[in-house]
Structures are given as C-alpha cells and as structure tokens.
Simulated assay, not measured.
Amino acid sequence: MWLKLAILILLVLIVISLFSGLFFLMKDSDGSGRLVTALSVRITLTILLVGLIAWGFWSGNLVWNTPWLH
C-alpha cells in the first residue's frame, strides 16, 4: 500500500514541478536559473518514479491485473 502512495506522491510532485517550470518560463525574465532548477527537480523525480515502479514489479508488490496475462 505504501508503494502505491509513494508513486502517487511522486506523480503529484512531478506535475507541480511541471507547472512551476511553466510559470518560470513565462514570468522569469532575469535569467535566474529557476527554470533549469525546476527541470532538474522534475528529471530527478521521474528517475525516482521509474526506479520505484521497477522495484515494485521486481519485488512483486506491483502486478499486472489484466485478464489476458493470467
């Protein structure tokens, strides 16, 4: 259960980072680098998400619930 919650939290954080990057792209005119920071955070969160999903499938905590695979 905690794995699915962690995946959901990471997805929400990725969306927040996406919109903060969009905001910095539109409003940041002084070149402070906040857009690059938002992109770096989003890439880090995405790598964590992919790793967490891969670990979930490898450990058996996440499984396919499709009827044609059983």
Rank of each mutant, 00 (worst) to 15 (best):
I47L: 09
I16F: 00
G51M: 01
A38G: 01
G51W: 00
G60S: 08
V41D: 04
I53R: 13
D30H: 08
W2K: 06
D28W: 02
L62S: 05
W64Y: 09
K4P: 02
I16W: 08
L35V: 07
W2C: 12
G51V: 13
V36R: 12
I47H: 00
V12S: 03
W64S: 15
A54L: 10
F24R: 05
T66F: 08
L18H: 05
I53F: 01
V50D: 05
A54C: 07
W55H: 08
L35I: 06
I53L: 01
I16P: 05
L45D: 03
S40N: 10
I9P: 00
V36E: 15
L10P: 02
T66K: 11
S20A: 15
G31K: 11
G33T: 10
V36T: 10
V50I: 05
T44I: 01
G60R: 04
L69D: 12
I9K: 06
F19H: 09
N61S: 14
G31V: 15
L52F: 08
V36L: 10
L35H: 08
L69C: 08
L5S: 04
K4H: 09
V41S: 05
L22E: 07
G60M: 11
F23T: 06
D28G: 12
L25R: 04
R42P: 11
N65A: 07
V15E: 03
L3A: 10
L25Y: 15
R34I: 10
D30V: 11
S59G: 04
V41T: 07
R42W: 08
S17Q: 02
L11D: 10
S29P: 08
P67I: 15
A38H: 10
M1H: 07
W58S: 14
G51D: 02
R42A: 14
W64F: 14
P67E: 04
S20P: 04
I43G: 06
